[in-house]
Design a binder for these strands. Structure first.
Lengths: 149, 149
DNA sequence: ATACTTGCAAAGTTTTTGCATTACA
DNA sequence: TGTAATGCAAAAACTTTGCAAGTAT
């Protein structure tokens, strides 16, 4: 199991919140940590069901919602319907292609600085901020080539 | 009909793209321009169906997708299921309450500056940017009072 | 006149729920 | 052991589609 530090930090959050550590949870968490593909529920199901039959869609839905509530993953609208999910310990920008739906993780060193300003802005509305998320839509490299303009 | 300038700019986009101006489109566009409630499809249907019977869900879905493609509105995931929509001519931050789902439009004078930096960051990936969108999750004022902590 | 748009209802997807069973702590 | 989590299948919710009729240009 790779990325032990990320994994351990997440498990610590489970324990802190009295959430049981089941094999299903572990395998879903592990998959999310090690995927950079922004998988859908369907993707996760097919990937994990191979090795771990007896894993139901319902459990994946439950656990993705759980991980979302614990701020371990975030949810991104999928242009093709439903959502895609991303392990989000290190904040980054998501560039989403309007044409093919591809999501690119964009490195953004200024994120922390931005995050501070965003949080200050919402505090003026007496809103207590947690996770910020920046998305930008447009056209990816491949799709620009395919249909120029 | 209020907000004629916003309305006219949108209509101009329709004409530019050879999209017909139907009464349904006009009334949906007008509703989006004048709503600050981030309505769901359901909300729009109920609001408009009163005065304009013979307006179908399908038409609302079609036209919201159209307005989204034209970058007139944006789609925001709704914690309670489905999406909520927002007229998005003047960019702003969305603060989304994890508890009650309320969405607050947060004024953010630095937006333009941020937008520039975000766009520059994604261009390094040969991504051609269009609309950026900043969301922040957390707990709204009311919900903080209800369940302190 | 022509082709785009609409309304309707049906089909297709996606997500949640209820409940009996299992298994973590 | 007690209670939370799971799997399954059914139900609910959400979104798209096909087609005949209507209408903007």
């Amino acid at each position: 199991m790779m990325n032990n530090e990320k994994y351990e930090r997440a498990i610590k959050k489970f324990k802190k919140n009295n959430i049981r550590i089941t094999p299903q949870r572990q395998i879903i968490l592990d998959y999310m940590i090690n995927s950079d593909q922004h998988p859908t529920v369907e993707n996760i199901y097919h990937a994990l069901n191979k090795k771990f039959s007896n894993l139901s869609m319902a459990t994946i839905y439950n656990n993705l919602n759980l991980l979302k509530d614990l701020d371990i993953i975030i949810e991104i609208p999928n242009p093709e319907g439903g959502y895609r999910y991303d392990f989000f310990e290190t904040p980054h920008i998501h560039a989403i292609c309007d044409n093919c739906g591809k999501i690119i993780d964009v490195d953004f060193p200024q994120y922390q600085e931005f995050d501070e300003e965003i949080k200050n802005a919402v505090r003026k509305y007496n809103f207590s901020p947690k996770t910020s998320h920046i998305e930008i839509n447009g056209i990816c490299e491949n799709c620009q080539k395919k249909r120029p303009q």
